[in-house]
Nucleic acid binder design. Structure first.
Length: 513
RNA sequence: GGUCCGUUCGUCUAGGGGUUAGGACAGUAGAUUUUCAUUCUACCAACAGGGGUUCGAUUCCCCUACGGACUACCA
């Protein structure tokens, strides 16, 4: 019988989640939904020294904002609770013991100083790859080299120790990566990794294998940085007797900094000139001073746009469609269309995606952003008017906040007039022509853009002025600026009275050359 | 240094033994617009290099170069 597909996103709560992590979570989620499986969130907090308060909540809030729904996790519980590794601490010990009993692991009593000395010695001897392995372990203080009674005595006293995996000396380890195909690594390249730390906590390597097995994970989708330790994980599954249900691996290509000089890290924060985090994050720097890192949400990105963009960094559907809702991503996603090579971040493209999604929103929804932002400035605007304005200015906006910026002209009379246009287009004839238009305007019965245009055309004909000569001047008189949305639509929304007053103000303020 | 992974327009990518190597973003030009923006159209622009295999390689293989990851009692 086919096993139910179960995937997990397993971040460590050492700070905010960066976009690479979000993408990993996204691909996991897409696969789970595509295959009708479950998505788990497991918190890997086995390093007590790197705990960052708030990080866990931040991760969950971020995923929620992105629309990534967790089926099992610390918030929602599930059949394999707890989902926080620190709370699973008692479970790992027995598996480490099992490995010791079967001869696949051993106790090591070396102090950090002894380990440093060992590495220094190997380096001095120009050993290409200094590591604790099948060769060097013979020179170290562990249960393989020490007499049995001494080991027993060391364990009984409170001497700190770790448990290390006994990696075989000569063995080819291979596994079939869903993205990269067969990966073959010789065991001599793998060191005797620590499985249990001296504080009694498991390391990532042990905890992740035990939990993935217990939680019945079928696919491990994670970043390429894990590829070198995947052979070690394969060994662990084998020695624990779980090889037949070992999950399939898929190592995702990395997300690089825009200049391509390395993987994007959370330490890049705001240094790159664009957010690397989904949500704004409040943390502390090395000196304990409070820091704020900007987020996509606070910068005005819509989650749909952010996700669509992120999905395309390393995956594509093979068609020419660029815009995908989450449901469409789920429908079209496939792990074998994930590329092998790393991707850099393209700020232009995220912006483009945001514009697409912003414009696709109904005017009524856009109006809500507008009303909200305007209210923050102390401006109250009727909904119907906000809808009209939003519809008019949305083509000019990248972010929701641009709407209110573009809308300012409706609420503030011009305080200055574009000088270029004035010097070129403003003259006595135009001034009188506009004054006449201002007089006629309040009597007009048709205040649609078309009606206003008809009136303007008629008045200018009477004045003997061509429309082209006066339009720029009219725009500047009404808005002060040389550029902006459709003028007739502006006047229509502004209304005849307000427009007329603005024109009259301009006529009286602007000297005629 | 060692091990592993990778390399198609500036960027994200499609393609795959015989193609005018396709799309998107950006850029440039034109059209529309009273203006800027939008929109539309066009243009610019790539198979890292060298060897094989083959009638034929961008595609398959090898080498080189370059880039990246990993190399902790961190994940």
């Amino acid at each position: 019988m086919e096993r139910e597909v179960r995937v997990r996103f397993a971040p460590s709560p050492t700070g905010p989640l960066h976009i690479g992590g979000v993408r990993t979570a996204l691909y996991n989620y897409l696969l789970a939904r595509k295959l009708g499986g479950k998505m788990l969130l497991r918190i890997e907090d086995t390093d007590q020294n790197r705990f960052v308060p708030g990080a866990e909540q931040y991760i969950m809030d971020s995923l929620r904002w992105c629309g990534i729904v967790i089926d099992e996790g610390i918030e929602q519980g599930g059949p394999h609770a707890p989902y926080r590794q620190s709370e699973r601490k008692p479970m790992y010990r027995q598996y480490a013991q099992q490995l010791i009993d079967s001869g696949h692991a051993y106790y090591a009593f070396d102090t950090p100083e002894e380990l440093d000395a060992m590495r220094a010695r190997l380096q001095a001897a120009k050993v290409p790859n200094p590591q604790y392995n099948s060769i060097t372990r013979a020179q170290m203080r562990n249960s393989l080299t020490l007499p049995e009674d001494e080991v027993k005595q060391l364990l009984d006293s409170d001497t700190p120790y770790v448990i290390r995996l006994k990696v075989p000396r000569k063995e080819e380890i291979r596994f079939n990566d869903l993205i990269r195909g067969w990966v073959v690594v010789h065991s001599s390249a793998v060191d005797d990794k620590v499985l249990m730390k001296s504080d009694g906590m498991p390391t990532y390597h042990l905890a992740n294998i035990v939990d993935d097995h217990l939680m019945e994970i079928t696919h491990v989708i994670r970043g390429e940085e894990w590829l070198p330790s995947a052979p070690l994980h394969v060994l662990l599954y084998r020695y624990l007797g779980w090889e037949s249900t070992m999950p399939q691996f898929a190592h995702l290509p990395l997300l690089l900094k825009p200049d391509g000089t390395g993987k994007l890290s959370k330490r890049d924060g705001d240094k790159l000139g664009f957010p690397v985090f989904p949500l704004e994050f409040h943390g502390t720097d090395a000196d304990g001073q409070p820091t704020v890192s900007s987020g996509y949400r606070e910068s005005g990105y819509l989650p749909e746009a952010f996700i669509n963009f992120l999905a395309f960094l390393g995956w594509n559907p093979g068609t020419q469609q660029e815009l995908f809702t989450m449901d469409e991503l789920i429908e079209h996603f496939s792990i074998d269309r994930v590329s092998k090579s790393p991707a850099r971040f393209d700020q232009n493209k995220v912006r483009w995606y945001n514009e697409q999604y912003l414009r696709a929103k109904p005017d009524a929804e856009l109006a809500q952003y507008l009303i909200h932002d305007l209210e923050a400035q102390g401006l109250n605007v009727p909904t119907d008017k906000a809808v009209q304005i939003a519809g008019l200015v949305k083509e000019r906006a990248t972010f929701p906040a641009d709407l209110a910026k573009e809308a300012q002209l409706f609420f503030e009379r011009p305080t200055s007039y574009d000088e270029q246009v004035i010097s070129k287009k403003w003259n006595a004839q135009v001034a009188t022509g506009l004054a006449a238009f201002a007089q006629e305007l309040p009597t007009s019965s048709d205040v649609t853009p078309d009606g206003i245009k008809a009136l303007l055309t008629r008045v200018m004909e009477q004045q003997g002025i061509k429309l082209g000569q006066v339009l720029q001047a009219l725009r500047v008189a009404v808005t002060g600026a040389a550029a902006g949305p459709d003028l007739m639509a502006i006047i229509s929304i502004l209304g005849p009275q307000e427009t007329a007053e603005r024109i009259e103000a301009a006529v009286s303020k602007l000297a005629v050359a």
